[in-house]
Simulated assay, not measured.
Amino acid sequence: MLKSGLYGKYKGVECEITLDMDNNLKIITEDKLNIDATFEYNYNSGFYSKIVKPNELLDCVSIVPYGIIQEEKVQILKEKESQYQVATDSLLVGSNLNLTRVDRDTWLGWVSKSKVTLIEEKTPINPEDL
């Protein structure tokens, strides 16, 4: 599964981190096995969330995925079964990959996962700074 965004460990379990509209730090998970009665079920979405304090989180990182195709770096936006949706601002890369030009400087399209080397750029973050 493609990860993108903020993640941290809560009680040893990795969860996605987000801020709500009131600037509360929240963790989100789909895994029913790792929740307790303090989690809220969010509007039939399949996701459970809980407001936490920054000091309850460990190993927090920001994850930005990108791919290497034909020795060129591309953004990875989405994932489906056997493909990644990729984007680039390079005319040469966009043309070589037969991507669709969606504006002056952006080419977008779906590429087989077998053609992409997936790289997750992980940057440590301090949850106190969120």
Rank of each mutant, 00 (worst) to 15 (best):
D59A: 05
L19E: 11
G8Y: 00
V13N: 15
I17Y: 09
L99M: 10
I27W: 10
D103W: 03
V93R: 08
A87V: 08
R101E: 12
L91M: 09
K113A: 04
D20I: 00
V52H: 14
D105G: 12
K115Y: 09
N96M: 14
Y7E: 01
Y48G: 06
M21C: 09
D59Y: 10
I51Y: 15
M1A: 07
S95P: 01
F47C: 09
L99W: 12
Y41M: 06
V61M: 07
D105V: 05
S95L: 09
I28F: 11
L77K: 12
K78P: 04
Q75W: 14
D59I: 00
K26P: 02
W110M: 07
E71A: 14
E40R: 04
E30T: 06
W110Q: 06
L57I: 15
E56I: 05
T38K: 08
I125S: 05
C15K: 14
D89M: 12
C15N: 15
F39T: 00
W110E: 06
G94W: 04
S114C: 07
F39G: 05
T117P: 01
T100M: 11
C15L: 06
G5E: 05
D129Q: 09
L6T: 00
T29H: 10
L57S: 10
Y7G: 01
N126E: 03
M1W: 01
S95M: 10
Y7N: 03
L97I: 05
L97E: 05
E14V: 05
P54M: 03
K122F: 00
G67P: 06
D20Q: 04
I69D: 10
Y48M: 04
G46K: 10
T100Q: 15
E128T: 02
A87N: 12
G12R: 10
N34V: 06
E121K: 11
S114E: 13
P127L: 02
E81M: 09
I69H: 13
I17W: 08
V111K: 10
K26R: 13
V61S: 04
K9E: 15
